[in-house]
Amino acid sequence: MNQTLDEVARRAGVSTATASRALRDLPSVRGETKERVQRVARDMGYVISPSASTLASGRTRTIGLLTPWVNRWFFSNVIEGAEKGLRQVNFDALLYTFHEAPGQPRNRVDPQVLRKRVDGLLILGMQLDEDEVLSLESLELPMVFVGPGHLRHPTVGIDDFAVAQMIMAHLEECGHTRVAHIAGPDLEQFDNSPSAGRHAGWKAWQEERGRPCDDTWYHYSSFDRTGGFESAMLLLDTHPDITAIFAATDDLAIGAIQAAQARGLHVGTDIVIAGVDDEDLAAYLGLTTVHQNPREQGQQAAEMLLAAMGGQPAPLVTFGEISLVERASSGRNTVRLVN
């Protein structure tokens, strides 16, 4: 026999509205009344309907997840981590993608498609301008950023300046002073972008030691292997005496490895190359890189957002752990790219 909320209320001696509030554990119901209603519901085997609970509370139990890509290593792993954190408390993710391509403006964020459909926002790897942030703030929902952040909202990521300094310290230990840099396309678009932080770390290291770092020693391009290949070719044409390349991501570094090999250079001896991320292919290719854990970042961001929805304050900046992974591309042994 199906039990109803009205029957629970009748047996507990309260109104249906009070029974509903008690079963949703709302603070407006006295403790002893709440315990009585919940005990009656358990004895009857009554379970409150999720859809009814949602309608009564105004909550959707859904988080809006905004991202430019879902099929790239960093983004797919952050999404996986965020969904894990949400599933643990029976929340869903509503995914909105904004494809970004070189030379093509992406669609602008429209807050109206999110209104009354989500309880909070996770913004993953999205470089939002101030007007877009203000438009999302008009929804009056908590927001947490992953990767590029915003000064007014919590951000989970890594210390990109420290990443670059870690790589540069390693390259110096290997004896390299003529180090070129490949950045991503966001270098000159946003001051708080990952590429800007990593470029700043590279430049500061070189400047402090009186080493070359003018604009002929770096190049930025699309966040893919083709961009890394083309940038490395340009840098090698401009400065044939380069002995090392620090690329802002593993994909860019893999493109640089392909460029070096196309020039007949032996990676690990004639030139060394390092990246950032430690994606799966990095180990296979023997790429020296800085390891980060985007799954943990995604889960942590989701948990911070859920806490913020409950009224708990969150730190504006949370850095995940990073570590240097030294492999063959910085000189231990031979690296050969498998086509």
Rank of each mutant, 00 (worst) to 15 (best):
13 G>I: 00
16 T>G: 11
21 R>K: 11
32 E>I: 09
34 K>I: 06
45 G>Q: 10
49 S>N: 13
61 R>H: 14
73 W>C: 07
73 W>V: 09
73 W>I: 08
82 A>R: 10
87 R>L: 01
89 V>F: 02
92 D>I: 02
97 T>N: 12
103 G>F: 05
103 G>E: 12
109 V>L: 02
113 V>K: 12
118 V>F: 09
123 I>L: 10
126 M>Y: 13
127 Q>M: 05
128 L>C: 05
135 S>Q: 09
146 V>M: 08
152 R>K: 13
152 R>A: 00
153 H>T: 04
163 V>Q: 00
163 V>S: 11
173 E>R: 09
174 C>Y: 00
176 H>V: 04
184 G>M: 09
185 P>F: 00
191 D>K: 03
202 W>P: 07
206 Q>N: 09
207 E>Q: 13
207 E>T: 10
209 R>F: 01
209 R>W: 01
213 C>A: 12
220 Y>K: 08
228 G>I: 03
228 G>E: 11
228 G>F: 09
229 F>D: 04
229 F>G: 07
232 A>W: 06
233 M>A: 02
235 L>R: 09
237 D>H: 04
243 T>F: 05
244 A>K: 15
251 D>R: 06
251 D>Y: 11
260 A>L: 02
265 L>Q: 01
265 L>P: 13
268 G>H: 06
271 I>A: 03
272 V>L: 02
273 I>N: 14
276 V>P: 01
280 D>C: 14
281 L>I: 10
283 A>F: 05
289 T>L: 13
289 T>Q: 14
290 V>F: 07
303 E>V: 10
307 A>D: 14
309 M>I: 12
311 G>Q: 12
323 S>P: 03
324 L>K: 11
335 V>K: 07
